[in-house]
C-alpha cells in the first residue's frame, strides 16, 4: 500500500503528463503512490462566501474517504486540487460550523486529521533533498530554471503553510537538488490570469506576457510549475505571441516532475513531453 494519491480530473486527461511524471518519478525514488478509489472532482475553487458549504462538499468527501485508506496522508500534485483540499481540510479542523454541516451532509465523522501533501513536500521530507542530490546525474547542470508557483500553492499562507505567500522557496530548493540552477524570479507567485482565460483573453495574455518576459530577462531556459492551468496559459499563448512579434523567443513550460524525470533519466515516453505547445525536447540535449 502506497501513499494515498488524488490525481484530480485534469490529470487523467489534459495534464496526463503531470500524472505520469509524478507517478514515475516518485516510484523511481521509492515513494509509491496508490490512487484513491472512487475519487471525484475536488471542486477546484475554494468557495470564498462564508455560507457556501456546498462548494466544500466534494473536497470534504474525498478527505473523509482518504482518511480511511492509508497512513494519515493524502498526496495531490495539481495546484488547484492541493489548494482546495488543503483549505477544506483546514475548515474541517478549525471551523465548527463547517465540520458539523459537512459531516452531517456526508454522514461522516471526519475532523481534518489528514495531512494534505504536495509531492515537493514529500521529496523534501520523506526522501530529503540531500538524498535526491545523490540520485540524479549531471544532466541538468547549469540549466537555468524559473520556478513558477502561481497563486494557488502559497496563498493564503496561514492555511497553505507553503512558505512565504509571495516568496516561497521550496521549488528552488528542489531545482538545486536536481542539479539545475534556479533564477531569481520575482514573478514566481504572480497570477497567470487563471480561469479568466474563459472570460477575458486580454487579461490572461497581459499577465502571461509579463511572466514570460520576467523569466526571459533572467535567461531562464525553462519554466516549471505544478499547475495544469498555469502550464496551459503560459504554454499555449506563446505561438500566438511569436506570430505577433518576430523577436519573441519561446520558453518551454514543464511540470516540475518532468524536470525531475529528465534528471533521473526516466524514459521520455513516461514523462508526457510530447503534449506541450512549446517543444521541450531541445532541453534534453542540455548538459
Amino acid at each position: 500500500m502506497g501513499i494515498p494519491y488524488f490525481p484530480g480530473c485534469t490529470l487523467h486527461v489534459k495534464a496526463k503528463g503531470l500524472d505520469d511524471s509524478t507517478r514515475a518519478t516518485l516510484a523511481a525514488l521509492g515513494l509509491e503512490l496508490t490512487e484513491l478509489p472512487e475519487w471525484t472532482c475536488c471542486g477546484t475553487a475554494f468557495p470564498l462566501a462564508q455560507d457556501n458549504y456546498m462548494g466544500m462538499v466534494a473536497s470534504a468527501r474525498i478527505l473523509a474517504k482518504a482518511a480511511k485508506e492509508g497512513d494519515g496522508r493524502l498526496v495531490t500534485v495539481c495546484s488547484f486540487c492541493y489548494n482546495v483540499l488543503k483549505r477544506v481540510n483546514f475548515a474541517l479542523k478549525n471551523n465548527d460550523e463547517a465540520r458539523t454541516k459537512l459531516n452531517a451532509y456526508l454522514e461522516e465523522n471526519y475532523n481534518g486529521e489528514l495531512r494534505v501533501l504536495h509531492p515537493l513536500e514529500l521529496l523534501r521530507d520523506d526522501l530529503g533533498f540531500d538524498s535526491l542530490k545523490t540520485r540524479v546525474d549531471r544532466k541538468l547542470k547549469g540549466m537555468k530554471v524559473a520556478c513558477y508557483y502561481g497563486c494557488m500553492l502559497s496563498r493564503p499562507a496561514k492555511e497553505m503553510e507553503f512558505g512565504e505567500p509571495e516568496n516561497p522557496a521550496l521549488m528552488e530548493e528542489f531545482v538545486k537538488a536536481v542539479g539545475a540552477e534556479p533564477v531569481d524570479f520575482p514573478y514566481k507567485t504572480k497570477c497567470c490570469g487563471s480561469y479568466q482565460v474563459l472570460n477575458n483573453y486580454d487579461l490572461v495574455a497581459g499577465r502571461v506576457k509579463d511572466i514570460l518576459k520576467a523569466a526571459r530577462v533572467r535567461d531562464s531556459e525553462v519554466i516549471i510549475t505544478s499547475c495544469p492551468l498555469c502550464q496551459f496559459n503560459l504554454d499555449w499563448l506563446q505561438d500566438r505571441f511569436a506570430d505577433e512579434d518576430k523577436s519573441f523567443s519561446k520558453i518551454p513550460v514543464l511540470y516540475f516532475t518532468q524536470l525531475l524525470g529528465i534528471a533521473l533519466e526516466i524514459s521520455v515516453a513516461k514523462l508526457g513531453l510530447d503534449n506541450h505547445y512549446v517543444d521541450p525536447k531541445p532541453l534534453l540535449q542540455a548538459g
Partner: peptide
C-alpha cells in the same frame, strides 16, 4: 478543445 478541465470547473463556479 485545448483547455484543462479544471479551468472550466473553476471558471464556471466563479462566473
Amino acid at each position: 478543445a485545448e483547455i484543462p478541465q479544471m479551468a472550466l470547473t473553476s471558471g464556471f463556479r466563479k462566473l
